[in-house]
Protein backbone atom coordinates (compact mmCIF):
# COMPACT_ATOMS: atom_id res chain seq x y z
CA UNK A 1 0.00 0.00 0.00
CA UNK A 2 2.85 2.36 0.83
CA UNK A 3 4.19 1.71 -2.67
CA UNK A 4 0.98 3.09 -4.11
CA UNK A 5 0.85 6.05 -1.72
CA UNK A 6 2.94 8.35 -3.87
CA UNK A 7 1.48 7.02 -7.10
CA UNK A 8 -0.30 9.75 -8.97
CA UNK A 9 -2.76 8.24 -11.43
CA UNK A 10 -2.07 9.59 -14.88
CA UNK A 11 1.01 11.41 -13.64
CA UNK A 12 4.74 10.92 -13.23
CA UNK A 13 6.00 8.73 -10.38
CA UNK A 14 9.57 9.06 -9.22
CA UNK A 15 10.73 7.23 -6.09
CA UNK A 16 12.74 9.52 -3.82
CA UNK A 17 15.95 7.49 -4.03
CA UNK A 18 16.37 8.00 -7.80
CA UNK A 19 17.74 11.09 -9.54
CA UNK A 20 15.34 10.91 -12.45
CA UNK A 21 12.91 8.63 -14.27
CA UNK A 22 15.60 7.36 -16.63
CA UNK A 23 17.74 6.13 -13.72
CA UNK A 24 14.66 4.59 -12.11
CA UNK A 25 13.80 2.85 -15.38
CA UNK A 26 17.33 1.49 -15.88
CA UNK A 27 17.43 0.21 -12.30
CA UNK A 28 14.14 -1.61 -12.80
CA UNK A 29 15.43 -3.16 -16.04
CA UNK A 30 18.72 -4.23 -14.45
CA UNK A 31 16.95 -5.79 -11.47
CA UNK A 32 14.52 -7.63 -13.74
CA UNK A 33 17.35 -9.03 -15.86
CA UNK A 34 19.25 -10.11 -12.73
CA UNK A 35 16.12 -12.01 -11.68
CA UNK A 36 15.77 -13.54 -15.14
CA UNK A 37 19.44 -14.62 -15.07
CA UNK A 38 18.61 -16.71 -12.00
CA UNK A 39 15.53 -18.05 -13.82
CA UNK A 40 17.67 -19.00 -16.84
CA UNK A 41 20.08 -20.90 -14.58
CA UNK A 42 17.11 -22.50 -12.78
CA UNK A 43 15.59 -23.86 -15.99
CA UNK A 44 19.13 -24.45 -17.30
CA UNK A 45 19.72 -27.10 -14.65
CA UNK A 46 16.73 -29.04 -15.94
CA UNK A 47 17.88 -28.68 -19.56
CA UNK A 48 21.30 -29.98 -18.46
CA UNK A 49 19.62 -32.98 -16.80
CA UNK A 50 17.74 -33.55 -20.07
CA UNK A 51 20.99 -33.48 -22.10
CA UNK A 52 22.74 -35.96 -19.79
CA UNK A 53 19.90 -38.53 -19.80
CA UNK A 54 19.14 -38.10 -23.48
CA UNK A 55 22.79 -38.83 -24.23
CA UNK A 56 22.58 -41.98 -22.09
CA UNK A 57 19.27 -43.29 -23.50
CA UNK A 58 18.78 -41.90 -27.04
CA UNK A 59 16.44 -44.71 -28.19
CA UNK A 60 14.12 -44.33 -25.19
CA UNK A 61 14.10 -40.55 -25.72
CA UNK A 62 12.98 -40.91 -29.33
CA UNK A 63 10.28 -43.49 -28.51
CA UNK A 64 8.97 -41.48 -25.54
CA UNK A 65 8.99 -38.16 -27.43
CA UNK A 66 6.87 -39.84 -30.10
CA UNK A 67 4.13 -40.37 -27.48
CA UNK A 68 3.64 -36.62 -27.03
CA UNK A 69 0.93 -34.78 -28.95
CA UNK A 70 2.82 -32.69 -31.55
CA UNK A 71 -0.36 -30.91 -32.70
CA UNK A 72 -1.22 -29.70 -29.19
CA UNK A 73 2.41 -28.73 -28.52
CA UNK A 74 2.62 -26.89 -31.85
CA UNK A 75 -0.67 -25.03 -31.35
CA UNK A 76 0.50 -24.03 -27.88
CA UNK A 77 3.76 -22.67 -29.36
CA UNK A 78 1.72 -20.49 -31.74
CA UNK A 79 -0.61 -19.43 -28.89
CA UNK A 80 2.36 -18.24 -26.81
CA UNK A 81 3.85 -16.35 -29.78
CA UNK A 82 0.48 -14.58 -30.21
CA UNK A 83 0.49 -13.72 -26.49
CA UNK A 84 4.01 -12.27 -26.79
CA UNK A 85 2.88 -10.04 -29.66
CA UNK A 86 -0.16 -8.74 -27.75
CA UNK A 87 2.05 -8.17 -24.66
CA UNK A 88 4.53 -6.13 -26.74
CA UNK A 89 1.60 -4.14 -28.18
CA UNK A 90 0.23 -3.44 -24.68
CA UNK A 91 3.59 -1.86 -23.78
CA UNK A 92 3.71 0.02 -27.09
CA UNK A 93 0.26 1.44 -26.34
CA UNK A 94 1.59 2.81 -23.04
CA UNK A 95 4.73 4.17 -24.75
CA UNK A 96 2.73 6.04 -27.36
CA UNK A 97 0.42 7.49 -24.72
CA UNK A 98 -2.57 5.36 -25.63
CA UNK A 99 -5.21 5.42 -22.92
CA UNK A 100 -5.91 2.74 -20.38
CA UNK A 101 -8.69 1.12 -22.41
CA UNK A 102 -6.44 -0.01 -25.32
CA UNK A 103 -3.78 -1.02 -22.74
CA UNK A 104 -6.26 -3.22 -20.91
CA UNK A 105 -7.56 -4.52 -24.24
CA UNK A 106 -4.14 -5.84 -25.28
CA UNK A 107 -3.52 -7.21 -21.77
CA UNK A 108 -6.90 -8.98 -21.82
CA UNK A 109 -6.00 -10.55 -25.17
CA UNK A 110 -2.65 -11.67 -23.71
CA UNK A 111 -4.54 -13.13 -20.73
CA UNK A 112 -6.84 -14.97 -23.13
CA UNK A 113 -3.89 -16.55 -25.01
CA UNK A 114 -2.16 -17.45 -21.72
CA UNK A 115 -5.31 -19.15 -20.45
CA UNK A 116 -5.78 -20.97 -23.77
CA UNK A 117 -2.24 -22.35 -23.39
CA UNK A 118 -3.03 -23.74 -19.93
CA UNK A 119 -6.35 -25.23 -21.08
CA UNK A 120 -4.62 -27.07 -23.95
CA UNK A 121 -1.88 -28.20 -21.57
CA UNK A 122 -4.54 -29.60 -19.20
CA UNK A 123 -6.01 -31.72 -22.01
CA UNK A 124 -2.52 -32.95 -22.85
CA UNK A 125 -1.80 -33.94 -19.24
CA UNK A 126 -5.21 -35.66 -19.03
CA UNK A 127 -4.35 -37.72 -22.12
CA UNK A 128 -1.06 -38.80 -20.52
CA UNK A 129 -2.87 -39.82 -17.32
CA UNK A 130 -5.37 -41.88 -19.32
CA UNK A 131 -2.55 -43.64 -21.18
CA UNK A 132 -0.74 -44.47 -17.94
CA UNK A 133 2.29 -42.37 -18.89
CA UNK A 134 2.67 -40.90 -15.40
CA UNK A 135 6.10 -41.56 -13.86
CA UNK A 136 5.71 -43.82 -10.85
CA UNK A 137 5.61 -47.51 -9.97
CA UNK A 138 2.68 -48.19 -12.34
CA UNK A 139 4.72 -46.88 -15.31
CA UNK A 140 6.94 -49.98 -15.32
CA UNK A 141 4.09 -52.44 -14.60
CA UNK A 142 4.71 -55.25 -17.16
CA UNK A 143 0.98 -55.44 -17.95
CA UNK A 144 0.64 -51.67 -18.35
CA UNK A 145 0.37 -49.49 -21.45
CA UNK A 146 3.88 -48.01 -21.09
CA UNK A 147 5.51 -51.46 -20.95
CA UNK A 148 3.67 -52.42 -24.14
CA UNK A 149 4.81 -49.25 -25.94
CA UNK A 150 8.42 -49.04 -24.74
CA UNK A 151 9.34 -52.70 -24.13
CA UNK A 152 12.86 -53.01 -22.78
CA UNK A 153 13.24 -49.20 -22.73
CA UNK A 154 10.37 -48.65 -20.28
CA UNK A 155 12.54 -47.62 -17.31
CA UNK A 156 14.46 -45.11 -19.41
CA UNK A 157 11.23 -43.80 -20.94
CA UNK A 158 10.01 -43.18 -17.42
CA UNK A 159 12.95 -40.79 -16.90
CA UNK A 160 11.89 -38.92 -20.05
CA UNK A 161 8.36 -38.55 -18.72
CA UNK A 162 9.65 -37.43 -15.31
CA UNK A 163 11.57 -34.65 -17.05
CA UNK A 164 8.62 -33.89 -19.34
CA UNK A 165 6.31 -33.33 -16.38
CA UNK A 166 8.85 -31.39 -14.31
CA UNK A 167 9.90 -29.09 -17.17
CA UNK A 168 6.44 -28.44 -18.64
CA UNK A 169 4.95 -28.35 -15.13
CA UNK A 170 7.42 -25.73 -13.97
CA UNK A 171 6.76 -23.78 -17.16
CA UNK A 172 3.00 -24.04 -16.57
CA UNK A 173 3.54 -22.83 -13.00
CA UNK A 174 5.31 -19.78 -14.41
CA UNK A 175 2.31 -19.23 -16.71
CA UNK A 176 -0.07 -19.40 -13.73
CA UNK A 177 2.06 -16.89 -11.80
CA UNK A 178 2.09 -14.72 -14.94
CA UNK A 179 -1.69 -14.82 -15.16
CA UNK A 180 -1.90 -13.80 -11.50
CA UNK A 181 0.41 -10.86 -12.17
CA UNK A 182 -1.63 -10.06 -15.28
CA UNK A 183 -4.68 -9.28 -13.12
CA UNK A 184 -2.52 -7.02 -10.93
CA UNK A 185 -1.09 -5.27 -14.01
CA UNK A 186 -4.57 -4.78 -15.48
CA UNK A 187 -5.69 -3.27 -12.18
CA UNK A 188 -2.76 -0.81 -12.26
CA UNK A 189 -3.52 -0.07 -15.90
CA UNK A 190 -7.16 0.61 -14.99
CA UNK A 191 -5.98 3.06 -12.32
CA UNK A 192 -3.96 4.88 -14.97
CA UNK A 193 -0.50 4.16 -13.55
CA UNK A 194 1.13 3.51 -16.93
CA UNK A 195 1.83 6.62 -18.92
CA UNK A 196 4.22 7.47 -21.76
CA UNK A 197 6.76 8.84 -19.26
CA UNK A 198 6.58 5.94 -16.81
CA UNK A 199 5.34 2.46 -17.63
CA UNK A 200 8.08 0.51 -15.75
CA UNK A 201 5.73 -1.94 -14.02
CA UNK A 202 4.06 -2.88 -17.28
CA UNK A 203 7.41 -3.24 -19.07
CA UNK A 204 8.94 -5.45 -16.34
CA UNK A 205 5.87 -7.71 -16.40
CA UNK A 206 6.26 -7.90 -20.18
CA UNK A 207 9.88 -9.03 -19.79
CA UNK A 208 8.73 -11.88 -17.53
CA UNK A 209 6.00 -12.88 -19.97
CA UNK A 210 8.43 -12.98 -22.92
CA UNK A 211 10.93 -14.99 -20.86
CA UNK A 212 8.31 -17.68 -20.22
CA UNK A 213 7.60 -17.75 -23.97
CA UNK A 214 11.33 -18.28 -24.69
CA UNK A 215 11.48 -21.28 -22.33
CA UNK A 216 8.66 -22.90 -24.33
CA UNK A 217 10.45 -22.11 -27.63
CA UNK A 218 13.20 -24.51 -26.44
CA UNK A 219 10.92 -27.05 -24.75
CA UNK A 220 8.80 -27.64 -27.85
CA UNK A 221 11.48 -29.08 -30.20
CA UNK A 222 13.42 -30.82 -27.39
CA UNK A 223 10.41 -32.66 -25.95
CA UNK A 224 7.91 -33.07 -28.78
CA UNK A 225 9.81 -33.41 -32.04
CA UNK A 226 12.48 -36.07 -31.43
CA UNK A 227 10.42 -38.89 -32.90
CA UNK A 228 8.71 -36.90 -35.66
CA UNK A 229 10.85 -38.28 -38.48
CA UNK A 230 10.16 -41.87 -37.40
CA UNK A 231 6.40 -41.72 -37.90
CA UNK A 232 6.05 -45.47 -38.27
CA UNK A 233 7.10 -45.76 -34.63
CA UNK A 234 10.29 -47.54 -33.67
CA UNK A 235 13.35 -45.34 -33.92
CA UNK A 236 16.15 -46.05 -36.35
CA UNK A 237 19.70 -45.12 -35.53
Amino acid sequence: MSDQAHAVPGGVRLAHHFDDLEQQHESAQLGMWAFMLTEIMFFGGLFLCYIVYRNLYPEAWQLASHQLNVLMGGVNTAVLICSSLTMALAIRTAQTGGGRIPQIGWLALTLLFGTAFLVIKTFEYKEKFEHGLIPGPSFIDPSGHAAAVFGAEVRHARIFFSLYFIMTGLHAFHMIVGIGMMFWTMRCSWKGYYTASNYDGLEMFGLYWHFVDIVWIFLFPLLYLLGAHATGGGGHH
Binding site: V12, D20, L21, E22, L85, L89, R92, Q95, S197, N198
Partner: peptide
Protein backbone atom coordinates in the same frame (compact mmCIF):
# COMPACT_ATOMS: atom_id res chain seq x y z
CA UNK B 1 18.95 14.52 -17.26
CA UNK B 2 15.45 15.81 -17.74
CA UNK B 3 12.51 14.45 -15.81
CA UNK B 4 10.89 13.24 -18.98
CA UNK B 5 12.25 10.08 -20.57
CA UNK B 6 11.97 9.18 -24.22
CA UNK B 7 12.39 5.48 -25.01
CA UNK B 8 12.72 3.94 -28.39
CA UNK B 9 9.32 3.04 -29.78
CA UNK B 10 9.50 0.03 -32.07
CA UNK B 11 7.49 0.60 -35.29
CA UNK B 12 4.35 -1.52 -35.49
CA UNK B 13 5.50 -3.23 -38.70
CA UNK B 14 8.62 -4.53 -36.90
CA UNK B 15 6.45 -6.20 -34.25
Amino acid sequence: MSGHTQHHIVPLRHY
